[in-house]
């Protein structure tokens, strides 16, 4: 295994962590690798000292409080007995700080993976609710339209009957009832428009979040 392969395996093992955190761990191991190389240790020996990359990843995850499945047991990384001691005279002198750059290490919690069953149920629930909502809104719309038509025809009939001098009292009552029905029709239409908007927005939000989840997954 080469250093690049080792690093790749480590990153694969750290996949539950955020990209930012993984980048920091990669930098840490790159620094370690560079320092060991400078100390005269061969690539093969360094990788032997680092141990199994997957085990290293699991150890870091375990320390970070990540859950590990029982099949992924952490292998103990035994330090190599050949690990060289840094002699004081060979130790690179630590430079005095020129520009202090504070860094804060932040771990993003692992997002819980949703099971396939819960996803299927949420999709079915979403479809059923959408169909019910659309049906309810359409029924309301039909009522509104019916009220408006009946009221309009009643008014037209009343005006015609009044013009021909038919039952004056009856036509006036008819006209009044027609106006009242027009009012109810307008109110129902407004309610219909408002509910259509609510349902439409709800569907849009659900679909957007569903596709975002799919993209992230």
């Amino acid at each position: 295994m080469t250093w690049k392969e080792w690093e790749l395996h480590l990153m694969e093992g750290l996949s539950p962590l955020s990209l930012e955190e993984r980048a920091k761990i990669a930098e840490y191991y790159q620094e370690m690798y560079g320092d060991k190389l400078e100390a005269g240790i061969s690539e093969e020996e360094i990788l032997k000292e680092f141990g199994d990359p997957k085990a290293c990843a699991q150890k870091i995850l375990l320390e970070n409080g990540e859950e590990i499945t029982p099949t992924q047991e952490v292998k103990k990384v035994e330090p190599s007995p050949t690990q060289p001691q840094v002699e004081k005279q060979n130790t690179p002198q630590v430079k005095k700080p020129q520009a202090v750059k504070e860094t804060v290490i932040k771990i993003e919690p692992k997002k819980e993976e949703r099971s396939i069953v819960s996803r299927v149920f949420s999709i079915i629930g979403f479809i059923v609710l959408t169909l019910l909502s659309v049906f309810a809104v359409l029924v309301l719309g039909a009522f509104a339209l019916t009220f408006a038509c009946v009221a309009l025809s009643g008014c037209v009939y009343s005006i015609a009957a009044f013009a021909y001098g038919l039952d004056v009292e009856g036509t006036l009552a008819n006209f009044g009832a027609g106006l009242a029905l027009i009012g109810v029709g307008i109110l129902l239409s407004l309610l219909f428009a408002w509910l259509t908007k609510i349902v439409g927005l709800g569907c849009k939000k659900q679909l957007t979040s569903f596709f975002e989840r799919r993209i992230k997954a």
Binding site: E49, G51, V94, I107
Partner: peptide, 26 residues
């Protein structure tokens, strides 16, 4: 100090690996 030197300084006294040091530093 830095990672490699910390490990080198501690190794004579206590067992510590790179994957142990990182979470401690964090």
């Amino acid at each position: 100090s830095y990672g490699y030197k910390i490990i080198s300084d501690l190794t004579p006294y206590i067992e510590i690996s790179e994957s142990t040091l990182y979470p401690i530093l964090r």
